[in-house]
Design a protein around this nucleic acid. Structure first.
Lengths: 182, 182
DNA sequence: GTCTATATTGTGATAGAC
DNA sequence: GTCTATCACAATATAGAC
């Protein structure tokens, strides 16, 4: 760790995944570092700054995961969907921190959001709306899985396959369609 | 209100939507009713019991909304999707309470979950996996909308149309498909 | 850069009187 | 069924000494 601030952010990230948002307290971070909570404020302004740093790091991690998934070959949409799911399952609490509130775009380093979105957009040949639909599907699947909201007997794998295949290859509605039927 | 317990649940629901989960405190409920917090415990065991009652009521409301949407005509899948979205937007905090944690199936009145799912399942001709994919898509769209996570220029309406149309009419993957691509 | 002491605010819940 | 008094905790954050 190059400096004390980075060390704090690193410890905060570990604590977040270990104990969820309730486990991420200034006292716990300090305790983990062998110091007292008030000392942290010599290095960071407040807890919010810490969260923003974690969010920025999360997007970087996602971007790398997506880029690697595409590079490894196969259908890009499928590869990214699998990487998206895996990353979320591996970082459930950071995932929630990143997605359950408005993105603090002003406070984030520039390009962070764009870089993680780029591979997805490319996989959908620049169709932002379809890419967004796919994102929403993946986000819904992931949050329902993480919240243990599917019935015990649900075939989650198959729901993933149906959703991804459908959105990747499904029909494009004409203007006004899907509101009245045909 | 037939009895004091129902009154408490009703007030709790109003408070939840007005002030979010942080606004739902025993003190606030009591204050709204003109009594003190400890008095509530003569009518309910604890806060959890209150939340479960709110969840059960939410599913009943959803079921009614879906049934009405189907009865009003049009493509059932589209009608239910629109009803799902509207209900969530109208009850954002109750929606989160219902979906961000495992369903307390043991504590819920019987049939509550099933009744709200039935119209969806029927709209998908009994295909549970496709219905589940549609649910995940709708859940993802709704949560991203409620969390204000879409970029400001996003065409949310069109993403809805693409997702619903695709999942309703998209191809059914054969076993193993969508993992290797063709 | 760390400490102690403290302000401030909040929560759910119980005991026991009336 | 309601009250007062209170327990037991926990949180973020600041002041000021060292």
């Amino acid at each position: 760790m190059t400096n004390r601030r980075d060390e704090i952010v690193h410890v905060a990230g570990a604590l977040l995944e270990r104990g969820g948002p309730d486990g991420l307290t200034m006292r716990a971070i300090a305790s983990e570092m062998g110091i007292k909570a008030p000392s942290l404020y010599k290095h960071i302004a407040d807890k919010r700054e810490l969260e923003v740093a974690l969010i920025a790091d999360g997007f970087l991690q996602q971007a790398e995961a997506f880029e690697k998934a595409v590079a490894d070959g196969g259908e890009p949409v499928v590869a990214i969907a699998e990487a998206y799911r895996r990353w979320a399952m591996d970082h459930p609490h950071l995932y929630a921190l990143m997605n359950d509130q408005p993105l603090p775009r002003e406070e984030l380093p520039e390009g962070v959001e764009q870089r993680s979105v780029a591979p997805v957009l490319e996989a959908f040949a620049g169709d932002r709306d379809r890419a967004r639909a796919a994102w929403a599907f993946a986000h819904g699947m992931v949050t329902l899985e993480l919240a243990d909201r599917f019935p015990p007997d649900a075939d989650v794998e198959r729901a993933w396959r149906i959703g991804i295949t459908s959105i990747a290859h499904g029909p494009t509605p004409t203007e006004g369609e899907a509101h009245g039927g045909t």
